[in-house]
């Protein structure tokens, strides 16, 4: 018994260990996995996050002028699979763990981003403008490419330009035989 009495006495001397929350601040580390947010400048709507999400909390709707990504907080199990597998790093988990809400606002607990498409500079079809960071990474070894121009092209026009550049062709309308290597 003496062993535990020692512990008791020490704990009494230490004073209360109660966390004052919610009447005061609480311990909350930065690395905590909280609400998921999407960076609309980086999301390319590839659907990898939907593929790896176990809880089915992510939905991506494509239409002709853009795509909408919705993450339902009430389904999200905070496993960070979407963050891990997102190829562009668009999804991050914030440290916002304040999740309690009333039933009336249940369906408003979402993270939604609308990503609008812009006409392709080459052919005019609506296209997802590539994130600048991604283009800079892709064309890192090619100083002659203007990232600002390339990112506004649709994949087909980009392939054309790549082919033209790679094989020193004269016109973008030239046969697209070099597509595979582009």
């Amino acid at each position: 018994m003496a062993g535990f009495l020692k512990v008791l006495l020490r704990n009494v001397l230490q004073g209360p260990s109660t966390d004052p929350y919610p009447l005061g601040p609480t311990f909350s580390p930065d690395s905590i996995r909280g609400k998921v947010v999407v960076d609309p400048t980086m999301c390319i709507g590839c659907g990898m996050c939907v593929h790896v999400c176990t809880a089915g909390a992510i939905n991506i709707q494509h239409n002709e002028n853009g795509h909408v990504i919705t993450i339902y907080r009430n389904s999200c199990c905070l496993c960070a699979n979407c963050h891990l597998y997102c190829p562009t790093g668009a999804i991050t988990l914030t440290d916002d763990w304040h999740s309690a809400h009333e039933q009336a606002v249940k369906y408003q607990q979402i993270e939604q981003q609308h990503i609008d498409y812009e006409p392709c500079l080459g052919c005019g079809t609506p296209v997802r403008v590539m994130p600048l960071a991604l283009v800079s990474k892709l064309y890192a070894g090619k100083p002659d490419v203007d990232p600002e121009h390339v990112r506004h092209l649709c994949p087909r026009c980009r392939q054309m330009e790549d082919a033209v550049r790679t094989y020193n062709l004269q016109h973008p309308e030239a046969p697209a035989s070099g597509n595979d290597e582009a």
């Binding site: 496993c79 763990w97 309690a100």
Partner: peptide, 8 residues
């Protein structure tokens, strides 16, 4: 239900 506390 009155209150939801999501999290996993």
């Amino acid at each position: 239900v009155d209150v939801n506390v999501p999290g996993c």
